[in-house]
Simulated assay, not measured.
Amino acid sequence: MQTNYGKNVECKAMPAAEGWALCKFDHEEGKCVRFRLYELKDDVKRKETAWSPWYGTEYGSLC
């Protein structure tokens, strides 16, 4: 996850979670965030997606 105010955060799912994780991020109101997903196995990134569009942190609409 990346913000337009310089915050970059990763959320990792543990192997026992079978690829699912709940990530809670604290964002500044009225800013924008975007996401990308990838699978990390044996320290190798696989199946990496492109960045999502930017979404507003306040209402989730496009920035």
Rank of each mutant, 00 (worst) to 15 (best):
M1I: 07
M1V: 09
Q2Y: 09
Q2L: 14
T3E: 04
N4V: 01
N4K: 07
N4E: 04
Y5M: 02
Y5A: 03
Y5K: 02
G6T: 01
N8Q: 09
E10L: 14
E10I: 14
E10K: 15
C11W: 13
K12L: 12
K12C: 06
K12A: 08
A13S: 13
A13C: 08
A13I: 10
A13H: 13
A13R: 12
M14R: 12
P15S: 06
A16M: 06
A16P: 00
A17C: 07
E18M: 12
G19P: 01
A21Q: 14
L22A: 02
L22R: 00
C23V: 11
C23Y: 14
C23F: 15
K24Y: 13
K24W: 07
K24H: 11
K24A: 09
F25D: 01
D26F: 13
H27L: 14
H27K: 07
H27N: 08
H27F: 15
E28S: 10
E28Q: 10
E29Q: 04
E29G: 03
G30H: 06
K31H: 13
K31F: 12
K31Q: 13
V33M: 10
F35E: 08
F35H: 08
F35G: 04
R36H: 12
R36L: 13
R36C: 07
R36N: 12
L37G: 00
L37W: 15
Y38W: 15
Y38M: 11
Y38P: 06
E39D: 03
E39C: 03
L40E: 15
K41I: 12
K41M: 14
D42S: 12
V44G: 05
K45A: 03
R46W: 08
K47S: 11
E48C: 05
T49Q: 07
A50W: 06
A50Y: 06
A50C: 00
W51H: 09
S52Y: 01
P53A: 05
P53H: 05
W54A: 00
W54M: 02
W54T: 00
W54R: 07
G56V: 04
G56T: 05
G56E: 03
T57Q: 00
E58D: 02
E58C: 04
Y59F: 10
G60L: 10
G60I: 03
L62D: 00
L62I: 02
C63K: 11
